[in-house]
Amino acid sequence: MSVSLNPAAYTRIVPAVVFDIKRPHLLVERSLMVTRRSWVAMVSGFFEPLFYLLSIRIGLSALVGDIEVGGQLIAYDAFVAPGLMAASAMNGAVFDSTMNVFFKLKITKLYDSVLSTPLTAGDVALGEIMFAVLRGALYSTAFMVTMWVMGMVESPWFLLSVPACVLIGFAFASIGMALTTFMRSFEDFEYVPAATLPLFLFSATFYPVSQYGEWGWVVQLSPLYHGVELIRAANLGEWRVELLAHIAVLVVITVVGSAIAARRIERLLLT
């Protein structure tokens, strides 16, 4: 895949695209209309992270014992749960913004007809990202409640895990959508799990970053890692200045990703 990103070109364009976003909520409204009929599939999406959590709680926790995080000892399942929460926010956002968007962009040509109304490419990009994030937020809330019921929530600050998941969703939906505009066929999507699986496995999801030893800095490159850290910190109710850096990374990814996506959609459809 040849991805030619010329940062100068995009930063020059960003304002024009961003200022032209006025009605993204109308595309969200369309997605809600569609979801009204496919709500079963939507609800079932919540079960995957739940099964992971249950499997670890039932089987692995006893084998691993407690884990030390920030000076506190916590059960292994309570350690992994925030990682799973972040990973499912990522997976949902990536799926919604890649396959689903590609289908509408290239196969059903949905966006062609949307762009002949007063909506703009920016509305389309942000609207689709917003829906992916909205759905992710529902799953996150359900997951948070599940953790609370299972007694894994250590602090009331854990309520902040939902906005953290929203941020993760925004970041990954933006990257996903930007990359999707460069995809040529469905075969290109085989590379998507090749990117998300390593992120899922190596973002301090299943064990503390200290375990990577001198390779710990590599983990920092994973956008998911920054999300995992935010949610884990929320669960422990601990405030550190580094959290601002984690937030900043995700915000930057979101802004750059969605600007590229909007610009590319415009270029693909308005020729």
């Binding site: 692995l60 691993v64 884990i67 292994y76 899922f200 496995l201 190596f202 299943f206 375990q211």
Partner: peptide, 11 residues
């Protein structure tokens, strides 16, 4: 690498 080695060390 992710599960076998990583979780393996913990187990």
């Amino acid at each position: 690498l992710g599960v076998g080695l990583g979780i393996g060390e913990l187990v």
